[in-house]
Computed example of a mutant assay.
Amino acid sequence: MHKILVSSCLLGAPVRYDGSGQQLLHPQLIAWQQQERIVAFCPEIAGGLSTPRDPAEIVNGKVITNTGDDVTPEFQLGAKQALRLCQQYNIRFALLKESSPSCGRNTIYDGSHSGIKVVGMGLTASLLEKNGIKVFSEQQMPALVKALA
């Protein structure tokens, strides 16, 4: 059975920038957990960032907090560690948190820290896709279920 990389916050872990989780309650996700197919991972924590932390958005290819700090190196490190984990466990599918500067699959925030979303990918989602790992957001659960069937 294929393992699936899943954003830790989607499993309820309090790893988001504001110290919260955003648990996805989906019967298939629960079944995968019971089958021990889930590999939980937060690239921002793995990259060395704390919880809570200043919110960050992608601005001209860099990840910048709302206070102006450049946290691109931490986001890049987390993305590389996610890729290594996928390679280690032969993971071909990932379920990541939409709109995150790390995990966003289809949308990210526009960099103005004003709540506006644009089409784009986070650093981790982009690196995984470039390396042949299929990335899905929590809004694409039916497609992920179908891909794993």
Score class of each variant (00 low, 15 high):
32 W>R: 12
134 K>P: 09
9 C>Q: 08
95 L>D: 04
116 I>M: 05
30 I>G: 11
133 I>W: 09
23 Q>E: 13
126 S>G: 04
90 N>E: 15
82 A>N: 04
104 G>T: 01
99 S>C: 04
77 L>E: 14
18 D>I: 06
104 G>S: 03
74 E>Q: 11
24 L>C: 04
75 F>D: 15
33 Q>M: 14
79 A>D: 12
15 V>F: 10
7 S>E: 08
72 T>A: 06
113 H>T: 09
135 V>G: 10
75 F>M: 15
108 I>N: 06
148 L>H: 03
82 A>H: 06
126 S>E: 12
124 T>R: 03
127 L>C: 07
19 G>E: 10
128 L>N: 03
106 N>E: 10
36 E>K: 11
107 T>L: 07
65 T>D: 03
80 K>G: 05
51 T>E: 09
107 T>M: 07
84 R>D: 10
21 G>F: 01
138 E>A: 10
61 G>S: 05
63 V>K: 06
14 P>M: 14
70 D>L: 11
97 K>C: 07
102 S>D: 06
63 V>E: 09
108 I>W: 01
2 H>W: 11
118 V>E: 12
15 V>R: 12
108 I>M: 06
63 V>G: 10
93 F>C: 13
55 P>C: 15
148 L>A: 11
101 P>V: 07
44 E>M: 04
140 Q>V: 01
44 E>C: 00
95 L>S: 05
133 I>K: 14
126 S>I: 01
19 G>A: 10
53 R>P: 00
61 G>Y: 00
144 L>E: 09
146 K>V: 08
8 S>R: 14
90 N>V: 07
132 G>T: 11
50 S>P: 04
9 C>W: 00
56 A>W: 02
16 R>D: 04
104 G>L: 04
27 P>G: 10
117 K>F: 01
58 I>P: 02
38 I>F: 00
77 L>M: 13
17 Y>V: 11
33 Q>C: 14
19 G>I: 05
27 P>R: 08
7 S>C: 03
88 Q>D: 07
58 I>S: 08
68 G>T: 01
30 I>A: 13
104 G>R: 04
132 G>Y: 15
138 E>L: 08
49 L>R: 13
79 A>L: 12
81 Q>F: 00
46 A>N: 04
87 Q>F: 08
78 G>F: 01
11 L>M: 10
35 Q>T: 11
43 P>Q: 10
120 G>Y: 02
3 K>P: 00
79 A>T: 06
120 G>V: 02
141 M>W: 00
131 N>I: 01
67 T>P: 03
73 P>Y: 02
39 V>K: 07
63 V>F: 02
64 I>C: 08
117 K>I: 02
122 G>M: 07
18 D>W: 03
32 W>H: 14
87 Q>C: 11
14 P>N: 15
96 L>A: 12
18 D>Q: 07
65 T>S: 06
142 P>G: 08
2 H>Q: 15
28 Q>W: 10
107 T>H: 13
71 V>N: 05
47 G>H: 03
107 T>V: 02
106 N>M: 10
109 Y>F: 05
83 L>Q: 06
145 V>R: 09
103 C>Q: 05
122 G>Y: 04
26 H>P: 01
31 A>H: 08
55 P>T: 13
134 K>L: 14
18 D>V: 00
20 S>M: 06
17 Y>M: 07
135 V>A: 11
48 G>S: 06
36 E>R: 14
9 C>H: 07
44 E>L: 01
39 V>I: 07
5 L>S: 03
41 F>W: 03
25 L>V: 09
105 R>S: 07
110 D>C: 04
103 C>I: 02
